[in-house]
Simulated scan of single mutants.
Amino acid sequence: MVESDYKVKLENVFEGPMDLLVHLIKKNEVDIYDIPVALITEQYLAHLEWMQLLNIDNVGDFLVMASTLAQIKSRMLLPSHGSEEEEEDPRMEIVRPLAEYLQIKSAAEELANRNMLGDKIFTRRTKSVDFLKDDQDLIQVGLFELIDAFQRILQKVSKEHTVDLSAETISVKDRMNAIITVLEEKGSIAFLEMFPQDPRKRDIIVTFLALLELMKMSLVRVAQHTQSGTIRIFYQ
């Protein structure tokens, strides 16, 4: 770990295990009723490994989902002993709650977007999406999209370049201050602008942790251009 006493606490700020599953399904452009369990399980475990590497808290529910996916994968490898009508697809164990979750999430998003005068049940759209309203080509980025982006950067780092814990490097708090300083001057920066041309693994991880903390503190928002895929960091 980058800092032995540093732990990232999600605390309902970021998405849960169902959101990670939805992210992977969308990323692979597959139907929820025809999930390639082996592929999704592999990618799910890869994300989970990254979250544990970063010492992200509250991963218990993610572990439960990983176990469920692994169990479904194992059941699908067993030989069939009856007709297709008699034996239910093992994937339905996850498809049913996933379909229900998507319905609830869609309804929640629709209600969150309503402005109802004189009614305290529904609130106006929060500040968290105000920075997107002037550009319809931007979508808000979550935890798992950020993990994908950071993984791509890490893949470019030489495998021989290991994390040097003895080297004098910037702390998470210092990196947070550095990002805010740039944003106060520019308003927003491209995701790749936060890294030097030849970044070290430790610096990449510290930047990731710093960005998560700034998002939790509602100091920054992250969005991605729908066509170019460019990710930008915006100052709140």
Rank of each mutant, 00 (worst) to 15 (best):
M1E: 05
E3D: 12
S4M: 08
D5C: 05
L10G: 03
E11H: 13
N12Q: 14
V13W: 09
V13A: 05
P17F: 04
M18S: 06
D19R: 11
V22T: 11
L24V: 02
L24E: 00
N28Y: 14
V30A: 07
V30T: 10
I32Q: 08
I35L: 04
I35P: 05
P36D: 03
V37N: 03
V37R: 04
I40D: 02
T41G: 04
T41R: 09
E42I: 01
A46E: 08
A46H: 11
H47G: 01
M51Q: 06
Q52D: 15
L53N: 10
L54G: 03
I56F: 08
V59G: 00
D61A: 10
V64H: 10
A66D: 06
L69K: 06
S74N: 05
R75Y: 13
M76W: 03
L77I: 07
L78K: 15
H81G: 08
G82V: 05
S83C: 02
S83A: 07
E85F: 14
E87V: 15
E87G: 04
R91T: 14
V95L: 09
P97Q: 02
P97C: 02
L98F: 04
E100C: 07
E100S: 14
Y101D: 00
I104P: 00
I104G: 04
I104L: 12
A108T: 08
E110V: 05
A112W: 02
A112T: 01
A112V: 00
N113S: 15
N115I: 12
F122P: 00
T123W: 11
T126W: 07
K127S: 14
V129Q: 06
D130G: 11
D130P: 00
F131K: 07
L132G: 09
L132T: 07
K133Y: 12
D137H: 14
L138A: 04
Q140K: 15
Q140T: 06
V141F: 05
G142E: 03
L143R: 09
L146R: 05
I147A: 05
D148H: 02
A149Q: 06
A149F: 03
Q151H: 09
R152L: 09
K156F: 02
K159P: 15
L165A: 03
S166R: 08
S166G: 15
S166I: 01
E168Q: 12
E168G: 11
E168V: 10
T169E: 11
I170G: 01
K173L: 11
D174P: 00
D174R: 12
D174C: 03
M176S: 07
I179G: 01
I180G: 05
T181N: 08
V182K: 15
L183G: 03
E184K: 15
E185R: 13
G187F: 04
G187I: 01
M194R: 10
M194E: 01
M194C: 08
F195A: 04
P196Y: 02
Q197H: 09
K201H: 05
K201R: 15
A210E: 00
L211R: 01
L212I: 14
L212F: 14
L212R: 12
E213D: 12
L214Y: 03
M215Q: 09
V220R: 05
A223H: 07
A223E: 02
A223V: 04
T226I: 15
T226K: 15
Q227E: 14
Q227N: 12
G229F: 09
T230P: 01
R232D: 01
